[in-house]
């Protein structure tokens, strides 16, 4: 019972500190902007730990953060193997193939106004569908290994990526296109120097949406069949063995991989579209 009261005290204390910081004179500094969510996160973890211990929640319902951390540290080789199989091979392989295919299709489609007009509504429609359901079919076609996961990822990200790229390639206005015309620029010259740069913010938007989709596709596809390695496989078998600390360790890996993947794409976006207003205002 003491631990539960302690948890409540920590929660109130953390909130009080954050309240002071957020309404204090230095609330707008970058340091405080990072500190406040960090304090919130740490408070949350501490309350979780204390509540699990204080209320003696069994492991099969909710492991404490310390148990998860111990499991994480003690099974690094397994987690790394799963990470390689699911993220590096399945998700990343599919991501590269899907993005390339979608951008190439978009460039082809963009040459015909008729096709573009038809493809945008269809693409938007398909992007909202539960594409992840194709996983059992693709697992049946491409076997249990990472190829089928990559295929699921390709199918999942193709249309969001296509729609974004097509929308980006038509962002130029008449003035800009006319200017290119007066320079006697060829199709590819105006493509590389005008339309592709203008489309980049849209392409990066698609790339960022696709990072999460890629991870979801690779993990869920493993629920339908996988070799005895992989994050989705580990999650579903560990759930079956009620080894929830392992499940949480995999979720930590997924969270880290997801944020890192997204962060990487954002970094490239900042490098390639430094001229765009949304990037300039941040600096």
């Amino acid at each position: 019972m003491g631990l539960v009261i302690f948890a409540a005290v920590i929660w109130v204390g953390g909130w009080w500190v954050n309240h002071k910081l957020a309404n204090g004179p230095r609330a707008e500094t970058a340091f405080v902007r990072l500190l406040v969510p960090a304090i919130f996160g740490v408070t949350l973890l501490a309350v979780w730990e204390l509540l699990v211990r204080g209320l003696e929640v069994p492991l099969v319902i909710l492991p404490a953060p310390s148990q998860i951390a111990v499991r994480f540290a003690s099974s690094l080789p397994v987690l790394w193997a799963d990470f390689t199989q699911t993220i590096l091979k399945g998700a990343l392989g599919g991501y590269v193939m899907g993005c390339l295919a979608a951008v190439c299709t978009a460039v082809l489609v963009d040459r015909s106004d008729f096709l573009r007009r038809g493809l945008l509504p269809v693409g938007n429609f398909v992007a909202a569908l539960p594409i992840v359901g194709t996983a059992p079919i693709l697992v049946m076609w491409y076997g249990f290994d990472w190829q089928s996961k990559a295929a699921v990822v390709v199918v999942m990200i193709f249309f969001p990526m296509l729609v974004n790229t097509v929308a980006g390639l038509r962002e130029t206005n008449d003035m800009q296109r006319d200017l290119m015309q007066t320079y006697a620029a060829s199709y590819w010259q105006s493509f590389v120097k005008l339309r592709l740069p203008v489309a980049l913010p849209f392409i990066f938007n698609g790339l960022k949406i696709s990072t999460t989709l890629a991870l979801i596709g690779a993990i869920v596809a493993e629920f339908f069949g996988s070799p005895t390695v992989g994050m989705g496989f580990r999650i579903s078998t560990s759930v079956g063995q009620l080894a929830l600390d392992m499940v949480w360790a995999e979720i930590v890996v997924a969270a880290l991989a997801g944020s890192a993947f997204y962060g990487l794409v954002s970094m490239f976006e900042r490098i390639f579209t430094f001229w765009h207003p949304s990037q300039r205002s941040r600096a």
Partner: peptide, 16 residues
């Protein structure tokens, strides 16, 4: 949290 495949939690929620 938008960048995380939270769907990985699904099997665990069901079993718990």
């Amino acid at each position: 949290s938008q960048t995380i495949p939270i769907i990985a939690l699904a099997p665990m929620i069901i079993v718990v």
